[in-house]
Design a protein around this nucleic acid. Structure first.
Length: 538
RNA sequence: GUCCCCUUCGUCUAGUGGUUAGGACACCGCCCUUUCACGGCGGCAGCACGGGUUCGAGCCCCGUAGGGGACGCCA
């Protein structure tokens, strides 16, 4: 019943020598001034070091919301020259899956959000999978227990809900402190029944808990509203709220940047920091991402997982660029298209917005197009080849221009696309006619071939081209242009009258790159042949 | 229900007491042009509402409305 099988990427755990600082807590020294310094490099020797983390739970694919959280953490870490840590929060044995774990790593890698410590790369504060840190949590829980801050709770969820309802409150009103003062005899009785307790943190009933949030400024909660939440579950696993605090502290996280949905967890977590006598990190909560209808972004709005966007031809840099713009703004500069480096340079936590933003697929597409058309020839080629291969299309060597090799030829074709290279999914239809004579003819385009005068014009053009082309070798674009314009002039036609049917004959499309460039790339013989074919001369 | 938060064009946003309220996406028009894009130029469109404070409010305060989030032995 463990949906969480071992995988090769997971690191060995519980071996005392697995990592330099896993001897005893604190795992990573908190105050090197008073504690012996481990020899783990510069990051370990400076407690003021900027260290951020992204801590997803492997219960599903990486969602754009999670990706943005990861991105902002990454950006701030990179900007500050600090460390970015990836930690997997898999304390829910029921829901965590290896497939999700793999998918998250894949998405992070695809986005280029590289982590300095975490799965696959290790690091001095590991292990980085919470399921491999159980001893750590138990140890901290023992400390808390020893100080009297924890108590056993034997209540079931139903019992709590029933009591809440009986008091006239909402069933989900939270824990009522029922087991706070259980008598020893009562505890013994429960345990004799075989009931296993969970452990709750006793929180104060008076006063306030507050912090200065990096994006919201002061946040304050009344202590009587903070319920005694479970810290160690019946199954011996820590709860999220306990594990994050322990890990963030031991991993020496300096800034906790997370979604707005964690705001109400923060006061409780702050209580744990205080109970353990730990210094608090800085907290920043970022507003949620909404769908176009201003409801929480979900699958019914369209793509939400990073991999879906990848499959739709979104570039990782574009995804990152767009996500950064969602809740952060570069200020008055006006420029919104950023390279990854530019983003790191321009980023500032101070400019993170406090109001929720709606995801705009159109704008993502625009940012993507901007990135796409700025790519150089080599990058275009690298992107286009797999797309074409997926269609089963590979360039026939016979197609290339005499002096080129296949990839040079493809590179020319892609360069020809110019600003039209803005949607990877459309590339096959845009250049399919470079791969085969048997291309489809768009119905709308076919109309351009319909007039009774068309065949004669195409034939005339074919003849003229055939005569103008050198018998051997390739002609320049100017030769094609001269032929078309010359014929138009002699017959009293507009150049367009020839070009439109010609485009259909050569490409099957109503829209394409420049006609003469297309002719030149296809080459004289095929151009002539296709013109004759369209004229009905087979 | 309780608690917390948010509110500038349809959307993302700039703005921190005096602005013709700026930019971007989308949309519309024009230019370029053999088509379609790209690019250039222009247009449409916004401070949720009501009270204060102030000589003066998009910016400060209060309230209302709308929206979002949280209230698990999920994270």
């Amino acid at each position: 019943m463990r949906p969480w099988p071992r995988s090769s990427t997971r690191r060995r755990a519980r071996s005392p020598s697995a990592t330099p600082c896993s001897r005893a807590a604190p795992i990573c020294p908190v105050r090197p001034a008073t504690a012996p310094r481990p020899r783990n490099g510069p990051a370990m020797s400076d407690t003021s070091a900027v260290r951020l983390r992204f801590a997803p739970s492997p219960t599903g694919f990486l969602h754009v919301g999670g990706a943005r959280t990861a991105l902002f953490n990454w950006l701030h870490a990179r900007k500050a020259g600090g460390a970015f840590i990836l930690r997997i929060e898999d304390t829910d044995q029921e829901r965590s899956t290896d497939a999700a774990y793999q998918a998250i790593l894949r998405s992070m890698e695809w986005l280029g959000l590289d982590w300095d410590e975490g799965p696959g790369v290790g690091g001095p504060c590991g292990p980085y999978l919470q399921s491999e840190r159980l001893e750590v949590y138990r140890e901290q829980a023992a400390t808390l227990r020893a100080s009297g801050r924890l108590y056993r709770c034997f209540c079931t969820g139903e019992e709590i809900a029933a009591r809440n309802a009986a008091r006239g409150e909402q069933e989900s009103a939270g824990y009522d402190g029922h087991c706070r003062e259980l008598a020893a005899a009562q505890i013994a009785a429960f345990e004799a029944e075989g009931r296993v307790p969970s452990w709750r943190l006793r929180t104060p009933d008076e006063g306030e808990t507050f912090w200065y949030d990096l994006v919201y400024d002061k946040r304050e909660f009344r202590n009587d509203l903070i319920t005694d939440r479970v810290v160690m579950k019946q199954d011996g696993f820590p709860t999220y709220n306990f594990a994050v605090v322990v890990d963030d502290h031991l991993m020496r996280i300096s800034h906790v940047l997370r979604g707005d949905d964690h705001v109400s967890n923060t006061p409780f977590q702050l209580q744990i920091y205080d109970a353990l006598g730990w210094e608090r990190p800085k907290f920043g909560h970022m507003p949620m991402i909404l769908g176009p209808d201003r409801k929480r972004l979900s699958k019914r709005h369209g793509a939400t997982s990073v991999e879906e966007f990848r499959d739709q031809g979104i570039l990782p840099d574009a995804m990152i660029n767009y996500l950064a713009l969602l809740g952060w703004s570069p200020g008055a500069s006006g420029d919104e298209v950023f390279t990854r480096e530019g983003l790191v340079k321009a980023f500032s936590l101070k400019r993170v917005n406090s109001s929720p933003a709606a995801f705009d697929y159109d704008k993502l597409a625009h940012i993507n197009a901007q990135h796409l058309k700025r790519l150089g020839p080599a990058d275009r080629l690298a992107l286009a080849e797999p797309v074409l291969a997926a269609r089963g299309w590979a360039l026939d060597p016979a197609w290339r221009a005499p002096a080129d090799d296949t990839r040079d030829y493809l590179t020319k074709v892609l360069a020809m696309l110019g600003g039209r290279f803005s949607d990877l999914r459309r590339v096959p239809e845009q250049i399919g006619f470079f791969f085969t004579d048997d291309f489809p003819v768009d119905p709308e385009a076919a109309a351009h071939l319909e007039g009774p005068e068309i065949p004669a014009r195409l034939r005339a053009l074919a003849d003229r081209l055939a005569a103008a082309l050198p018998p051997q070798g390739a002609a320049g674009q100017d030769v094609y242009e001269a032929a078309v314009r010359g014929l138009a002039e002699e017959t009293g036609l507009e150049a367009g009258d020839l070009i439109h049917p010609c485009r259909v004959a050569l490409t099957g499309l109503t829209r394409s790159a420049g006609m003469f460039e297309v002719m030149w790339l296809i080459g004289g013989p095929r151009t002539v042949a296709r013109l004759r074919r369209a004229a009905g001369d087979r």
